[in-house]
Simulated assay, not measured.
Amino acid sequence: MTAVLPARAPGAAAPLPPAAEAARTGLLRACARFAGRWSLRALVAAAVLAFVGLALGPHVLDYRTMTMLTGSMAPNIEPGDVVVSTPLDVSDVEVGMVITYHIPIDDHRVVTHRVIEVDHTADGTVSVRTQGDANDAPDPWTAVLTGDTAWQMRAVVPEIGNAITALRDPVVNKALVYGAPALLAGWMLLSIWQPVRDEDDEDDAEADRA
């Protein structure tokens, strides 16, 4: 009697042996666990760095941050971007620089605009005229830079200002206050429990092979 083996379609891959299939499945699961674990750690690290850089950094290091609220400096600075400014001697302010300062009228709000004119008086006072890159006309005021220090824009962090604004929402703020500690505790417990589960999986695999 002659046994007839089923013919394999041309180009079809040979089926993997059960042991090889199990090994491949185990490898995929291990890779997924590894990726999930380190993705969570990277997310936590990024959140901590952003908090340190934007919330704590300006209090301990020599720079300031400000969220752009309007499109007056587009496209270089869009609404929601965070402007990072560093100190500069007032006497060194020049035409073409982008500076952050308090306007001399209305609510004395802070703006970040480009210097288009600088005037140095005999008594050392420095006054400037500015204009937003996206505006058709100069700002309708002349600002006197008080003190010895001006603030020059050095970097722009895109979009993160929108996240900061969202975090100030009362509902989101409460969720972070109560939810963040719970997530951190869960992450720590998962880190402790995960190796034990891996060892149990290995013991079960050895028992199946036996």
Rank of each mutant, 00 (worst) to 15 (best):
P17T: 15
L27R: 15
A32Q: 08
S39W: 14
R41D: 06
A42K: 04
A42T: 03
V44Y: 14
A45I: 07
L49V: 07
L49Y: 04
V52Q: 10
H59G: 13
H59Q: 15
H59T: 11
R64W: 11
R64L: 10
T70K: 02
T70A: 08
S72M: 07
M73P: 00
A74M: 09
A74V: 01
N76M: 04
V83W: 00
S85A: 15
T86M: 09
P87D: 14
P87E: 13
L88F: 03
L88Y: 03
D89Y: 05
V90R: 13
D92T: 02
E94C: 02
V98E: 03
V98H: 04
I99S: 09
T100N: 08
Y101F: 15
H102V: 00
H102P: 01
I103N: 00
P104D: 11
I105K: 14
I105A: 15
D107N: 12
D107W: 09
R109Q: 07
V111D: 03
T112F: 04
A122R: 14
V128L: 10
T130V: 09
Q131F: 00
G132C: 06
D133S: 02
D136M: 08
D139K: 09
T142D: 05
A143H: 01
T146P: 01
D148S: 14
D148R: 10
W151N: 07
Q152A: 13
R154I: 00
V156H: 02
P158K: 06
G161C: 07
L176C: 11
V177Y: 15
G186D: 05
G186I: 01
W187C: 02
W187E: 10
I192C: 14
Q194N: 13
Q194A: 15
R197F: 06
R197D: 08
D198C: 06
D201K: 10
D204Q: 04
E206M: 06
A207L: 09
D208Q: 13
R209K: 12
